[in-house]
Design a protein around this nucleic acid. Structure first.
Length: 532
RNA sequence: GCCCUCGUAGCUCAGCGGAUAGAGCACUGGCCUCCGGCGCCAGUGGUCGCAGGUUCAAUUCCUGCCGGGGGCGCCA
């Protein structure tokens, strides 16, 4: 502002401080430092804002200025393969973004782009035949998909006959052979059932109806080629059909192609990604395509985006956003692996989280009855894993550490959940219902009350900040700050020992804090138990 | 070789153009037995990888270098 006016910042600030009329909103406006305006809100104004916030369902969170149709592409496990930590981040971050986007009024379409097509299916189907359909179904339903995949792989690598069968099977699959398709469907269905179990365990929104495997786009691939041809973008290169998006080069500084059709005539994933873009923009009517996939895919996605734009399929306001994320590391700072050096199975990791949470509750609150404890252990265990992931800036790698994520101190799920549970406990003890204090205009006098009031009123901007950058960790940081601020309030401002209006006021602050915590955690896909 | 990304306190992380760079663990020193917890308060600890540049102002933007991770045509 100072630059535009050609004056020094301090002068501008002083002028603003003098001329602005803030009666009823601020107590004073002071210039500080190199040109900051420090404004102190009026207690009564804050109190009024809080009352309004408490009266509404949205807790002050405004809807997005334009409601869009947003497709969120996330999770994307592979059929007949175990889900591992690699899928954890995509699933958790995607789920949080879905919930946040919905919370501000967007129409959100979830898409789980599972890997259900391609050359591995030749060997998988042949292996299924070897096991017999019933045997295979049994094998797949126990959830040990890795074993199934590895057996198939092993045969493929060691037996030329099997390799041959696998190749022929791929041809049959692509040709639409009925029996092959039936077997393929069996594999997909068993895997889908397994995925559903994992998603339920993870408490994530993805459902069967959200599955949109690569095979879904098969019938559109030919038209992608035709349309690229018609747009004059398609070129022959080394017997393959490719598009050269501007600005991409390979090792030798030659233009880097996006391969649309391989020289054997088959399509590959770039083609199906382009078909996806068309489907999402033209059929679903999306204006925002969110891809929650790992950072290594950045170049591929950006090539797809470039081609989609050149072909005229993706144009303003429609756009793609790559919500990239880093890897999960072990305490050795290397990619998290199991003791045997393999990818860590997601289910095993989740089970351990719940088990650890359960042990922790047993120790801290032995009176809690078993049934409640079981439910709460799930919320804390799963919540801890999710929060540990979401609380870090997603583009960075993060270190997976059980102790830290399950700790009741620091920026963790249990800390936030505890703050919430504690408030619920106050109400139980007070013998008041939560809703009974929602009309109260709180008293904002004590510094701790003021700090809490200000923190509560920042909920709206925290949600929108996080969403603007597709960074759930910004919401985490806010919630942690709110919970810490609440803890200070809790220490300094007795609630149940206060009388009359003060007691009602403090109960109202407690209630609103609990609601924001619950809602905020909810947006992250994390539960807020009432006792723990 | 080229491109992307990360490099902030002993450890794990915030902060992404502004005021003396913040948390949590850990460490030190005080309180406290309190509505649900070994809790509260305070303190020690940083040339924000290095070097330039842009700006009134840079941890934040740009360039180069160093270090970690990743990607670079028929797997997805």
């Amino acid at each position: 502002m100072a630059k535009r006016l050609g004056k020094n910042p301090r002068e501008v600030a002083e002028q603003i401080a003098r001329s602005v009329d803030v009666a009823g909103v601020c107590r004073n406006v002071k210039v500080a430092g190199p040109g900051f305006l420090n404004i102190t809100f009026d207690d009564a104004f804050l109190a009024q804002q809080l009352r309004e916030m408490a009266a509404g369902e949205s807790l002050g969170v405004r809807n997005a200025t334009v409601a869009e149709t947003v497709v969120v592409d996330y999770s994307a496990p592979n059929v007949a393969k175990e889900m591992h930590v690699g899928h954890l981040r995509s699933t958790i971050i995607g789920d949080a973004l879905v919930r946040m986007l919905e919370a501000v009024g967007h129409r959100v379409v979830r898409e789980n782009h599972i890997g259900d097509w391609g050359t591995p299916f030749g060997m998988l189907i042949e292996h299924l035949i070897d096991l017999g359909e019933d045997g295979a179904a049994r094998e797949l339903s126990v959830g040990d998909l890795d074993a199934f995949y590895k057996q198939a792989r092993q045969k493929f690598d060691t037996s030329p006959q099997f390799q041959d069968r696998a190749r022929q099977r791929v041809v049959a699959l692509q040709a639409g052979d009925a029996d092959t398709l039936r077997l393929w469907n069996l594999l997909v269905a068993e895997s889908a059932r397994y995925f559903a179990q994992v998603y339920e365990k993870l408490d994530v929104r993805l459902q069967h109806a959200d599955l949109r495997g690569e095979s879904t786009y098969n019938h559109l691939l030919a038209s992608v080629v035709e349309r690229l041809q018609a747009a004059n973008l398609l070129q022959r290169n080394d017997d393959a059909e490719v598009v050269f998006p501007a600005g991409f080069t390979n090792r030798e500084n030659q233009p880097l192609p996006l391969i649309i059709r391989k020289k054997d005539g088959g399509y590959n994933y770039a083609t199906s990604d382009l078909a996806c873009v068309i489907d999402r923009v033209e059929n679903i009517g999306a204006s925002l395509l969110v891809y929650v996939v790992g950072a290594p895919q950045a170049q591929h996605l950006s090539m797809v985006e470039s081609v989609a734009q050149s072909a005229g399929w993706l144009h303003s306001p429609a756009r793609m956003v790559h919500v990239a994320f880093g890897s999960v590391l072990g305490s050795d700072r290397k990619m998290l692996r199991s003791r045997s050096g393999e990818a860590v199975k997601l289910v095993e990791l989740l089970d351990e989280a719940v088990q650890r949470a359960d042990a922790s509750i047993r120790e801290k609150n032995p009176e809690l009855d078993a049934e409640v404890r079981e439910r709460v252990a799930r919320q804390i265990g799963i919540g801890s894993v999710k929060y540990a992931d979401l609380a870090n800036d997603r583009v960075k790698d993060y270190v997976f550490d059980w102790e830290r994520m399950l700790s009741f101190d620091g920026n963790t799920a249990p800390y936030l959940q505890y703050a919430h549970a504690r408030i619920c406990s106050i109400f139980r003890r007070a013998g008041e219902s939560r809703t009974s204090v929602r009309g109260v205009v709180p008293i904002v006098e004590h510094p701790a009350e003021r700090a809490l009031a200000l923190a509560l009123l920042r909920f709206d901007s925290a949600v929108h900040d996080a969403l603007d950058r597709f960074s759930p960790h910004r919401l985490c940081t806010y919630l942690y700050d709110l919970a810490s601020t609440y803890t200070t309030f809790y220490e300094h401002c007795p609630v149940l020992k206060a009388d009359g209006e003060l007691r009602a006021s403090r109960l109202a602050l407690c209630d609103l804090t609990a609601r924001v915590l619950e809602r905020g955690l909810g947006m992250l896909g994390i539960g807020a138990p009432e006792q723990m």
